[in-house]
Amino acid sequence: MAKSKPRVKVPKKADKGEVIKIKTLISHKMESGQRKDKKGELIPRQIINHFSAKFNGETVFEVDIQPAISANPYMEFNMRAEESGEFEFIWVDDDGSIYTKKQPLEVS
């Protein structure tokens, strides 16, 4: 499979105190470990097992993910905008890979 590519949709600007909606998605097959190949052997599990969103280093949202989450895991959540800064989104793969994406936010 091609390298996992994260995508995020975050407003660039927000008013102080406003609750903003954040949408994230990463391309990933999310192999559940339940499926069998043509020979009848189990295909080993490989999923994104954890997602976290940090703002200026502070964790604002986290998800522990099981194989029942669909391929190309999508996560939508909210944050109250208090100050300008930078988001960091982190996805952890079963194989140890870590995918990250950063996005600035301007609060006025």
Partner: peptide, 16 residues
């Protein structure tokens, strides 16, 4: 899945 929220979330809502 288990979602972890914080007071910073503003609203306790998540979608997947």
């Amino acid at each position: 899945a288990t979602f972890h929220f914080s007071p910073r979330s503003g609203v306790a809502e998540a979608a997947t």
